[in-house]
């Protein structure tokens, strides 16, 4: 498994906890539209991702992330910049 695959698997695991509607999740899944998360759920989820990967995702950055794929790439980038 590549680093990216590992990141994806970890993020999918974290999503499960917040995926109350049981929506099927792929890399194309959008957090707001497909998972129907409100802003509070998004903030809780972002905090979980931050703690899992020991990175910081600012609200400015989070606002630009719409899909699972974008999150996986953003976390990779943030880990790289540490």
């Amino acid at each position: 498994m590549t680093d990216r695959d590992e990141r994806l698997q970890t993020i999918l695991r974290l999503i499960t906890e917040f995926n109350k509607k049981g929506v099927e999740v792929t890399e194309e899944t959008r957090f707001a539209q497909d998972l129907e998360w409100d802003s509070l759920t998004v903030m809780d989820f972002v905090a979980a991702v931050e703690d899992e990967f020991d990175v910081l995702i600012t609200m400015n950055r989070a606002a630009e992330i719409e899909t699972v794929e974008q999150l996986v790439d953003a976390v990779g980038e943030l880990q790289g910049s540490k």
Partner: peptide, 10 residues
């Protein structure tokens, strides 16, 4: 209104 980087905590 500003343009700082915003970080939220629980």
């Amino acid at each position: 209104l500003g343009n700082a980087q915003i970080v939220a905590f629980r």
